[in-house]
Design a binder for these strands. Sequence first.
DNA 1: TCTGAAATACTGGTATACCAAAATATCGGT
DNA 2: ACCGATATTTTGGTATACCAGTATTTCAGA
Lengths: 239, 239
Amino acid sequence: MALSADIKNLFGDNSVITRSPSLAEDAAQTLRAMILLEKLPPGTALPERDLATALGVSRTPLREAIRLLASEGLVQYTAARRPFVADPSIAEIKNCLRIQGALEALAGQLACEYATDQELEHIEQLNKQILMASTDGDDRLTAFRTDMDFHCAIVAASGNPQLAEVHAANNARLWRVRFLSSQRTASRQSTRREHENIVASLLARNASQTAIDLRQHLTTAETNIELAITEKKQTQADE
Amino acid sequence: MALSADIKNLFGDNSVITRSPSLAEDAAQTLRAMILLEKLPPGTALPERDLATALGVSRTPLREAIRLLASEGLVQYTAARRPFVADPSIAEIKNCLRIQGALEALAGQLACEYATDQELEHIEQLNKQILMASTDGDDRLTAFRTDMDFHCAIVAASGNPQLAEVHAANNARLWRVRFLSSQRTASRQSTRREHENIVASLLARNASQTAIDLRQHLTTAETNIELAITEKKQTQADE
DNA sequence: TCTGAAATACTGGTATACCAAAATATCGGT
DNA sequence: ACCGATATTTTGGTATACCAGTATTTCAGA
C-alpha cells in the first residue's frame, strides 16, 4: 500500500465503537485526506481502475468512495462522467462561506438558548488551545484541527444534529482553502480576536450578538481566504 | 415494470439537454417519488435484490441509487447496514425547518441585492399561480409543486448556486411532510398571507425585511406541519 | 407450551467480466 | 508539416457470482 496508515486519521477518530468500516468508507477517507492535503491536487483525474489498484481494492468499493466524495463536493464529474478532484473558483468558495456564515450564526443563536454550561466551557477550552498552539508554530496542523473543532463544537452545542450534518458537509468543501488560509500569520491574528468575541457572546448567552460575531468571523474568513489564494497563485507564478 | 413512467417526472423535467440518465439515477428518481408519495412508507425495508428486480435493473445501479437517497436523507441504515425509508421524528423535521429558515433568509437577502427584475417578476408570477390554483381545489399537487418552485426560485435568485444545492438537498427531507401540510386548509391560508409579504419585500428589495418574512414563513410552516402530523396520527389511530 | 440452540435463508459487501461510449493514438493524404 | 479519418485503448456503466455476517426458522429438550 502506497499510503501511510495515519493519513486516514487526519480528522481524528471519533468512532467510539470502531465498527470495522467497509472498504468503500476506508477508501473514501484515504482519498479525502489525499485531496485535502493536495497529494491529489484540484483538477486531477480520478480513473476508477487506477485508484482501485493503488488502494488495493476492487472497483466497486472505490467507485462508491468516489460517489461519496462527490456528494461532499470534493469530487466533480466531467460531461462524460469522468471524476476529477474539484477545483472550486473563488466565487464558489465565497458562496460556501456565505452558507457557513448563515449556518453558524443559526447554530450560535441556538447554542445560546440550548447549550449546556459544559458545552460552552468546552468551546472556551478549545479556543484557549488554539491560542496556545498558535504561539509555538511547530505544529500548525494541530492548531488548525482545533480551530475546526471549535466551530464544530459551536454547531454541536446548538442541539440540532441535522444542522451539524449540513454544516459538516458544507465544511468539507472549504477544508482545503481554510487550511491554506490558516498558514497566513495575518489570518491567524484576526481569527484570534474574533474567536474571543464569539466565546464572550456565547458565555453571556447573548444570541443576537453571537450571531453577529459568527457572521463577522465568516466574512473575515472570506477576505483571508481570498488573500491566501491570490498569494499562493502569485508564488506559483513566480516559479 | 410495475411503475407508470410519469411517477419519475414528479418534480418536472428541468434538464435542458436530456443526457440519457444512468440506470442508477433513473432508479433513484423512481424510488424518490415512491418514498415521497408514500408508496414506500417510512420505515419500509429496502432490500437491494428485491428492489433491483422490481425496477428491472441489477443490484449495482440500484445500490448506487439507494446510496444517493441516503445522502439526501430519504434513506437510512440500520446498525447492520440494512437500508430503510427514513422516518424522521417531529424534532428532526423541526431541525430541518430551522435550517431551511436560515438558508432561505440568506437567499432572500442576497436576492434583494443580486436578483434581476425578471427573476423577481418570475417569483411574483409563481405566487399568483399558487393563489389561482388553490382556489379551485382539484389539483393540489400542482399547487404544491408551484409552492416548492416559488421557494426554489427565491433561492435561485440569490445568485448562489451552492446555496441552491444545499437548500435543495435539505428540502428533499421535508418534501413529504410539506406535502402533507399543504393539504390542510388552515395551512394554505396562512401560507397565502405570508407569501404576499415575501413578494412585497422582495419587490421592494428590502433585504432585512425579506429575511424576516422568510424566517416567519418557515416558523409558521413548523407549526402547520406539526399540526398536520398530529392530525394524521389521530386519524390513523381512529381506524 | 415454552425455550434456546443449530440449521437455513437472506442481506449487504466485494471482486470480476463484459459492454458501449469516449478519448487517444495511428496513419494516409495533402 | 498539417489535417482528418480510422483503429486502438481507456473509461465508466452494468450484470453477476461469491462471501461473510445477520436474521429467521426449525426443532430438540425441558
